[in-house]
Design a protein around this nucleic acid. Structure first.
Lengths: 354, 354
DNA sequence: CGAAATTTGAGGTACGTTCCTCAAATCTTA
DNA sequence: TAAGATTTGAGGAACGTACCTCAAATTTCG
């Protein structure tokens, strides 16, 4: 009737509580035969460890640090907020998150922060950073010290990071390509691709996926070389203006990164709103507004709330050396159009001490 | 340095542990002034209740029951599996799920099951059922007895259900409509709408959303009256065959419910594969395969894993009379195309006693 | 067989909270 | 001011697991 406890296992297996404990926690000094008897009893009774009691007994606490690039990118802002919210909830389960920003222009600051982390203080790190050699080394050193690290938003392969929380940029780019192709059905012409900068791996991979699909599945569309805006509205206006003037037959615009607001202004000024199929990435206040207004046809996104919760769950699992639930941690490449736009995330107010 | 505990609050507020406890758990017999002093101390210290310790002390266990219609619908099968998996994980946090199937042809069986539930045995119920008057009454009675109820997959408004876990069918239908319209860009013609039966609220609402969008945004497309297959491949073949023979200019097919396998066979037999834009609902092995093969252009889906986890989380919250995290429980209307098809959910194997 | 090594048992404390009892202190109100 | 009502304090047991120590039992091996 009631849940079996460790004492029930001991009785069932005909051993003492201490032995059950040794088996359950994989402590040494138990004969294989005894281990077998205990696991048998566990299976027979259908015992499941009560994690509440276990974490309480362990009185373990999880101090995590998250590093996000400083700056005004809306996606990063949204993610930061999602992390704060997820952390507020996770505080009830003894997880403490220290969210820090680093100047994106000087990676050595970040590296310094990472190098200063000590496993006694910090159980795990969530990091959003481009993959440069210095970062790679810093991450490797961190892990060598026994601190878990998950890459968030943008992957850091070849660093031995414990996990990547985010979507596959290449597949996201392919998805954008298919939507562009299908939304432009019957049209032939050119597609402008606009990015902040093509130095980021994500942008490169999105672009690659996008091109692949256009090339193989939508030969009537030609994707032009990427226009780089360097994150400023002025550059976007001038570069895009020049390009449009010089290029006839543009039917679609693909924004690899930010710049939706600047683009909307530009198109409005030129009376071009609604003239192109426009596809972008990430759901932010700007893209949300553009979708609603009809200036943006689809957004390929990853859910920041899921990102944040997944990152914290994975970090905790890694800190506990426990397996992660792959199914739950797999993030979807979301396709957002006006009709399935989720409700504005309202002020989610958590009661204080509940 | 260390997390504040109830004892810290007591010291900080200058009251006893008992009083802190009374305030924390909203027990009676504390003066407003004292309550204020305690909450002040809580805020000052940034106290967060340790849920692990709390649930342990309460030694509460959560016995939940889920009712799904019996039958071979793939979505229901997938959902059942997702519920089992979510329950296996939640077992570690003292939640026990009893997954039951009821014969969809006789609602009285379900009603009987519901009527037999006693709040001493069952804390909450997850129910997937059509909204009929008998069901409505049974649900009302259940809630009157103090058992929490969440509707899963398909809503039960006007029953006072505690929560609905699922997506808005109307919005899902609109989303399908937009994709149909955009994928048929430049074409004018007719769209066939196929359903198992139009008696289900979900089908009706999807259809309504779909029609709305076609009517206002894509006047070149005409949605024809719904063809009902009653869930059998034979009916689908004959009805659809007749309709296609009698109707020129069909450019799209919209499947409100199941029947993807039968449709694929039908189209293959007639040599019509790839001739229409085909849009459907729910990601199942069949739709997944059709997407991959290119016979199906898009699927509007809700994630069964999220459904299951959300249902259990909400039930637990309701059983504890605690607020739910709206942000986390909001389910997305997913748009799935071949390019963003998630990996096949593999055998997720959880180690036994970890 | 005996000594050494290994395995097991018994018992305890701790984790942070809930929930209980009973007495003491404080407030109300006639 | 005194009786009654309300509020507060002190203390303890319980939840299920982790982790510790030391002694006893058992096995291994020379």
């Amino acid at each position: 009737m009631t849940r079996p406890t460790v004492n029930d296992i001991a009785r069932e297996a005909g051993v003492s509580l201490a032995t059950v404990d040794r088996v359950l926690n994989a402590r040494p000094g138990v004969r294989p035969k005894t281990i077998h008897a205990v696991t048998e009893a566990i299976n027979r009774l259908g015992y499941v460890r009560d994690v509440a009691a276990a974490t309480l007994a362990r009185s373990r606490s999880y101090r995590m640090v998250a590093f996000l690039p400083d700056g005004d990118g809306q996606f990063v802002q949204t993610l930061a907020q999602a992390l704060e919210e997820a952390a507020a909830l996770a505080a009830a389960t003894r997880l403490q998150l220290d969210l820090r920003r680093y100047p994106p222009e000087d990676m050595h600051v970040l590296v310094g922060h990472l190098a200063a982390l000590h496993p006694a203080d910090v159980a795990g790190v969530a990091l959003m950073a481009p993959e440069t050699p210095v970062i790679r080394d810093a991450v490797r050193a961190l892990r060598a010290r026994g601190i878990a690290l998950v890459a968030i938003g943008s992957d850091l392969p070849n660093t031995g990071r414990d996990h990547f929380v985010g979507i596959d940029s290449h597949a996201a780019g392919r998805t954008a390509g298919v939507l562009m192709g299908r939304f432009c059905r019957g049209l032939s012409g050119r597609v402008l691709v606009i990015a902040d900068s093509m130095l980021l791996r994500d942008s490169i991979e999105r672009r690659r996926g996008f091109d692949e699909v256009l090339l193989t599945d939508f030969p009537a569309l030609e994707a032009l070389p990427t226009l780089e805006t360097h994150g400023t509205a002025e550059t976007l206006h001038s570069v895009l203006g020049n390009c449009l003037d010089a290029t006839p037959g543009v039917v679609g615009l693909y924004l690899l990164g930010a710049g939706h607001r600047a683009l909307a202004t530009f198109l409005r000024d030129r009376g071009l709103l609604g003239r192109f199929v426009v596809i972008g990435h990430e759901l932010t206040p700007h893209t949300r507004q553009a979708l609603r207004a009809g200036h943006l046809d689809a957004v390929i996104a990853q859910n920041p709330g899921h990102l944040a919760r997944s990152a914290l769950r994975v970090l905790r699992a890694k800190a506990d050396r426990q397996p992660i639930d792959e199914g739950q941690e797999q993030l979807r490449i979301e396709v957002v159009i006006r009709e399935n736009l989720p409700q504005e995330p309202q002020e989610s107010r958590h009661s204080d001490a509940a």
